[in-house]
Design a protein around this nucleic acid. Structure first.
Lengths: 205, 205
DNA sequence: ATTTGATTTAACCAAACAGTCAAATATACA
DNA sequence: TGTATATTTGACTGTTTGGTTAAATCAAAT
């Protein structure tokens, strides 16, 4: 009988998903080997196909899971009742903190979306990524003269670019700036304030 | 005899390089098939191995070429004698214009660097990516009270994030903002001004 | 015309790969 | 305990892939 009392004990499916996430996010779909995932999970290769019939099926579980754990939070914060500047702070806080723990996610998602853009469509429709409410708030603040005029697309781009780019460009930044891992971590910790400051200053009238 | 008079006639090596660049940048190293590259170039698969002994060799030609055609320009502009704000404008102009013509480059480079970070090291050392001069200029402007204090790493990150992210996040942006190809192109054209404005406003005292 | 060297091809090969299957083992329940 | 069901494995398969090779073709010099 398995030791179901030990809290750190994971069942096989969770073991596979955890291993698959690590390998897929690190190597991408094409670069990942089913053997690598099996080894990482400490199980037999055939067992992967017992739980997830194919590499594609396993990948979609991971990819969908990752999208669902990152995108909806943005919509949630942006569509909330919070003041604009607080939203900026919340987004930057949430994404920089989450991505610090899983720094491979952005490049993984964006690479797979680049190779296979249709993947996103279903997911977006499914979650009803609606930015209308936020667009209205932004326009109100502009109309009231509280911030400078800016289109929603550019606002969103600026905010996410500033939050996410450090993780996407990590090897580039570490190389150009001559940072080691410790120094890079300090740099990332500073980003949260930099992002909100940069965004808010650029919006002030 | 080949028609060497026709200017549009490319020799086989150039044909291969052009095809390989298209396939590699679109699919990544692992996703690219030598057969695909051969087909794209309109030649036989064995001919690839005649000109470039292996997939790795061919890939390195492409990857090095891409790095050399993008990174040095940044160092050149940043290390020049131009005023700070003009440098921002030049960088944003150059990168947004170049990447509009080759939008797959950023995600390609950053994905490959993520899977294989050591690739960059040689290239950076080789080109002497030195940002010391620029750091001094930035510090001078800060000391003279002309701009708000900011570390070089964050300045560079912000500038490149704002320039490059639209291309990295293209499918995401098109999906969330409901843009078609034409609308995305207009959006990219607007980016140049947005980037310089955002950067400069965030730096003003 | 013949030789020489560079270019191109079709056919082939070994390794790596995702995926399969029958047999073995563990688990639950009667 | 015995039996049915769920889980796990080692050995296997067919296909795809990067890479090779020997022969054919072409271009130019002798």
């Amino acid at each position: 009988m398995k030791n179901i009392l030990a809290t750190e004990e994971l069942n096989t499916e969770e073991l596979i998903l955890r291993a698959a996430k690590k390998i897929f996010t690190h190597k991408g779909f094409e670069g990942a080997r089913m053997k690598d995932i099996a080894d990482e999970a400490g199980i037999n290769k055939a067992l992967l196909h017992y739980y997830f019939r194919s590499k594609d099926k396993l990948f979609e579980s991971i990819f969908d899971g990752v999208l669902k754990s990152f995108l909806p939070q943005a919509i949630l914060i942006l569509s909330s009742e919070l003041p604009l500047f607080q939203k900026i702070d919340r987004i930057s806080e949430y994404y920089i903190q989450s991505l610090s723990k899983q720094p491979d996610i952005p490049i993984f998602v964006l690479h797979e979306l680049s190779v296979n853009p249709y993947r996103l469509i279903e997911n977006i429709k499914e979650h009803g990524m609606d930015l209308h409410l936020f667009s209205q708030q932004l326009q109100s603040e502009i109309d009231e003269g509280k911030i400078r005029p800016i289109k929603t697309a550019h606002f969103i781009t600026n905010l996410f670019a500033l939050c996410v780019f450090p993780f996407i460009g990590r090897p580039l930044i570490m190389g150009m700036m001559n940072l080691n891992d410790t120094e890079f971590n300090s740099y990332v910790l500073e980003r949260r304030q930099i992002v909100t400051e940069t965004m808010i200053r650029s919006l002030k009238v």
